[in-house]
């Protein structure tokens, strides 16, 4: 997934669309907005980021999971199988992005990249709703995909590359 921080206006449509699509319980969110401001008046620089699970290539949450509930699903998305989750929270402590939380029903919940939509050929709810077109989702290995194209054309960063987890959400600058 790519997030074009130049377009994002931090409106939070992505957060609410995700909550509605995924019936995320009150008080929790699977994606969120971070607004960063650097500098001193009037020399300021701002960056808005729609953040979520990075679906890392080396997911420490999956490594930490004792039951196999946290797993890498087909295509590389990191998912939690509710039936296997004991709610031990090892994955929560293992995630450097704090992208997970305990669902009130006991299992650990997080962004699924809306894989249930992807299976129907739809984009994730956050991507579909975004009024600024700042989110894009697709196959990073396909050089013709929109995400690959955006990464070729733009300067980008990932969050905390020093964790070595290989995060897969890219922030275009």
């Amino acid at each position: 997934m790519t997030v074009d921080t130049r377009l994002c206006v931090a409106c939070k449509a992505c957060v609410l669309a995700c909550k509605a699509e995924n019936a995320v319980p009150d008080g929790f969110c699977r994606d969120w907005l971070v607004e960063e401001t650097r500098g001193e008046f009037p020399d300021l620089h701002a960056q808005n980021r729609s953040e979520r699970c990075n679906h890392c290539s080396e997911p420490p949450c999956v490594d930490a999971c004792p039951t196999g509930a946290s797993h890498v699903a087909g295509g590389g998305a990191v998912l939690v199988t509710h039936d296997k989750c004991t709610g031990c929270k090892a994955c929560i402590a293992a995630c450097p992005y704090d992208a997970r939380y305990v669902h009130p029903q006991g299992w650990v919940d997080k962004c699924t990249f809306c894989l249930h939509r992807a299976r129907r050929g739809e984009k994730p709810a956050c991507v579909s709703v975004c009024p600024t077109f700042c989110l894009e989702f697709g196959d990073l290995a396909d050089p013709d995909s929109d995400v690959s194209r955006r990464l070729r054309e733009r300067r980008y960063k990932v969050l905390h590359p020093e964790t070595g987890c290989g995060p897969n959400v890219y922030f275009l600058e």
Partner: peptide
Amino acid sequence: MGYTRREFIRIAGA
């Protein structure tokens, strides 16, 4: 890890 990121959507769809 033993997976690749190829064809994200299609694999998921399969």
